[in-house]
Nucleic acid binder design. Sequence first.
DNA 1: CTAACTTCGTGCGTGTACGCATGAAATTTG
DNA 2: CAAATTTCATGCGTACACGCACGAAGTTAG
Lengths: 151, 151
Amino acid sequence: MKTARDQLPMVLRAAYLALHRQSDHRFAEYGVTADQFVLMATLQRGEALTQRELARRMPSDPSTVRAMLVLLEKQGLIQRKTHPTDARARTVALTPQGEKLFQKLWQAGEPIRKQIQNSLPPGTIQDLVRLLQCVATGLKTDLHTDLETVS
Amino acid sequence: MKTARDQLPMVLRAAYLALHRQSDHRFAEYGVTADQFVLMATLQRGEALTQRELARRMPSDPSTVRAMLVLLEKQGLIQRKTHPTDARARTVALTPQGEKLFQKLWQAGEPIRKQIQNSLPPGTIQDLVRLLQCVATGLKTDLHTDLETVS
DNA sequence: CTAACTTCGTGCGTGTACGCATGAAATTTG
DNA sequence: CAAATTTCATGCGTACACGCACGAAGTTAG
């Protein structure tokens, strides 16, 4: 018999991939992907982030974020300037078009959020968010610590 | 103020990506990825699946699964034979080495499952699994149905 | 039994997930 | 101040996430 803890990883994977697919389909007509939406949403809250800080908040890998920024810059949705005080860093921000498109994307994503809500027992979304936050932070703490830092 | 339903997608994403990273690191020393582990786990339960059926159960895209199978076959972990009755299909199964490696992988993944359990309030894993299943199935039902099938 | 349609696998293209290495700039040390 | 270390962005390579289109084989319709 499968215990809950044994099937959790698979279910988490299935839920995320389903969300990702739906989002990609919804956003396709606006010419952006689900992850580009996440990037734009992260930019929207948080002024003039460096690429590294942006990656940290997404969360994603800096080199991944860079590739996304190149594409988004080509579409005129974001802009990169050299950091005012740190010459090696670059600050990222949404362009006016980026801001405007993001508003539409947020609207376009509403049916998905609603569908999730309807799929869940009433009032359990809050619990789900809390539990997922526990999982995320619990797994984030590790990384290069194998035996140390555990005690 | 951010409602739970508005932040759920991001939190779900963060939790999954954290899990994926941890898994990749754990499995790296065995020469397989987190997703290859999922594929092998799916094969283990379910004898002689076609590639399509395997993709459906993962769940993943058939063309993605094909690419993974090519790599796993090169490593001798899985084997593909032509389907006995359907000439266009191919059945997939773990090789003995694949079976053996999977046992080790399951062990190697144990710390991750434990860490998740420890991150959560006692007895809530069951709830989390249930809620995630709701999300997954709720989002799976759609796909090409825009206005129809809704009524 | 052909003809139309569906289903399986494959191949190609794009975007995202990383890791690792490099060079430049900032920070810390001596 | 000069040297070692850290931090930023970039570039390259691999694996996964798809979609789309193709040919081959199975199924259904006439």
